[in-house]
Amino acid sequence: MEANYSKFNRVCQIIEENGFDKSKLIPILQAVQNEYRYLPEEILAFIASSLNISPARVYGVATFFAHFTLKPKGKYIIKVCDGTACHVKKSRGLIDAVKNKLGLKDGEHTTKDMLFTLETVSCLGACGLAPVLLMNEEVHGQVTPDKVVKLIDAVIKQEEAR
């Protein structure tokens, strides 16, 4: 119940730490996204009004960079590499396996329980381990569809235990 307040309080702090400086918009958005895991519309409007810039400008910056997201993401973000090396090593099969396992339809990236988000990236720079995926910050190399399913099961189990 205090969670909302502490997050919001943190946003106010972030803006203050950056001295209400509109040229620091990008660092502010980065820090805010770290708090919320995405950029909520109301928070963007709040940032715009605090920095005295138009919400349209903030929206423009937030939608320009791939790093920022305006949609809530899952607690676990699975980034499957689809760069040349991984692609050759059948990363497409991995992506399908994840989609099947999580029941994601075309155009969907996040599970309804907000536990997982699936993203594809162009290269993780670990081509020797292709195909590669990232589960949050953790790198997994030479992944097979079976391994991916096990990995996801393990996370689900761990979460259920909580």
Binding site: E41, A56, F65
Partner: peptide
């Protein structure tokens, strides 16, 4: 005023009000 601005990137670039809303909901 800045009621409209660029949003998105590359082939998806567009000029629109904040949060891709309608102009009537903007400043």
């Amino acid at each position: 005023i800045g009621a409209i601005d660029f949003a998105n990137r590359g082939p998806n670039s567009q000029v629109c009000p904040s949060f891709a809303k309608e102009l009537d909901d903007s400043e």
